[in-house]
């Protein structure tokens, strides 16, 4: 069959027109794509991506002055003196708190139990640290926790509110509006309501934890203390308790940690209920590495084998701290 010559359609477009139209279409499409990319914020438009939104906590580690030791350990039975001595062993509170700072103190006030039962941070432990912070020139001291039981009852019965009243500390209650969604890439903790309001105001954050036995995770110390900042049905994390406790070392880098082992709840924790559950150990340890502090507390305050504390190993392996406190600079004093 003979090939016919192609004749242009007089009503059609020529090559120049075709290129022009293609360029216009391409530019329009490209512009739309670029505009879409510019405005694209997944959480705004796609309900399935809510978990991508939320706050993360800044580091509260101060670079003011390097502590003189990694762990400050003080032995004594006067809680005020022993706590002061442990912090002094690090070089003093002035290495951590500056004049005009707003300082958040996080005690463990999970239960409405009297201080003698050692289920909560002892009020004298709070007094010791709060006094030091105020002496360092802090503008304001906030005390915050989200207890298991009624906050008012917990703060009252634990003696925390009495110290707050006495020293003029701001006791911050976990009202609904005080929670904000946390977003982090933890092993188990990723997107969850956090008692965030105290962090909004704080320049420095200090954890004040009691050392105690815990039915589920063997021990509640400085890392576990941050559990008390979570809202929601946080008990659902109990089935992954070692993972979430190690996540707290990722969630927050506090300015200072104080672990109180003057009296240690050795059995029937975390609530206790009998003085026979409580042992007088007479030690307070301070530092900035939660993993090292808890490792020390588990070994020397609870007298248990660190090989059995899963969350410490998890945190250590994740590079969130050093469980080998023996390899660190430990300054030990006796009162």
């Amino acid at each position: 069959m003979e090939k016919q010559p192609v004749t242009p359609d007089p009503k059609g477009m020529d090559r120049r027109q075709f290129i022009r139209h293609m360029a216009l279409t391409g530019a329009t499409s490209g512009g739309a794509i670029l505009a879409g990319l510019y405005m694209w914020q997944r959480q705004h438009f796609v309900p399935g991506f809510q978990e991508q939104s939320g706050i993360s906590l800044p580091s509260f580690i101060t670079d003011k002055m390097k502590p003189q030791a990694d762990l400050g350990v003080a032995h004594g039975y006067d809680r005020i003196q022993t706590t002061r001595a442990a912090i002094d062993a690090l070089g003093g509170i002035s290495r951590f708190v500056s004049k005009g700072d707003v300082v958040m103190l996080k005690p463990n006030v999970a239960f409405d139990r009297p201080p003698a039962l050692a289920a909560t941070t002892h009020p004298e432990s709070l007094r010791a640290v709060a006094q030091l912070v105020l002496e360092a020139g802090a503008k304001k001291v906030i005390v915050a926790d989200n207890p298991i039981n009624s906050p008012a009852g917990c703060f009252l019965k634990s003696g925390i509110s009495a110290v707050a009243d006495d020293l003029g500390l701001e006791l911050m209650y976990p009202e609904q509006s005080a929670f904000t969604q946390l977003q982090m890439e933890g092993e188990i903790l990723r997107h969850w309501p956090l008692f965030y309001r105290p962090f909004e105001k704080a320049d420095k954050v200090i954890g004040l934890a009691p050392c105690k036995d815990h039915n589920l995770c063997s021990a509640s110390m400085s890392m576990k203390n941050w559990y008390g900042l979570l809202g929601g049905r946080r008990n659902q994390f109990h089935q992954h308790i070692h993972s979430i406790i190690s996540d707290f070392a990722l969630m927050l880098q506090p300015t200072l940690i104080v672990l109180d082992g003057v009296h240690v709840l050795q059995s029937n924790g975390p609530t206790g209920g009998r003085l026979s559950d409580v042992k007088e150990v007479g030690t307070v340890v301070a530092g900035t590495d939660m993993v090292a502090i808890d490792s020390y507390g588990y070994t020397n305050m609870l007298g248990r084998d660190i090989a059995n504390l899963e969350y410490i190993h998890k945190a250590h392996e994740r590079g969130l701290g050093n469980m080998h406190w023996q390899d660190m600079i430990v300054k030990e004093v006796r009162i």
Partner: peptide
Amino acid sequence: YTGDAEALEFTREAV
């Protein structure tokens, strides 16, 4: 779009 109302309600109950 992002508020987890249910979680916050649980929080209210817990606290």
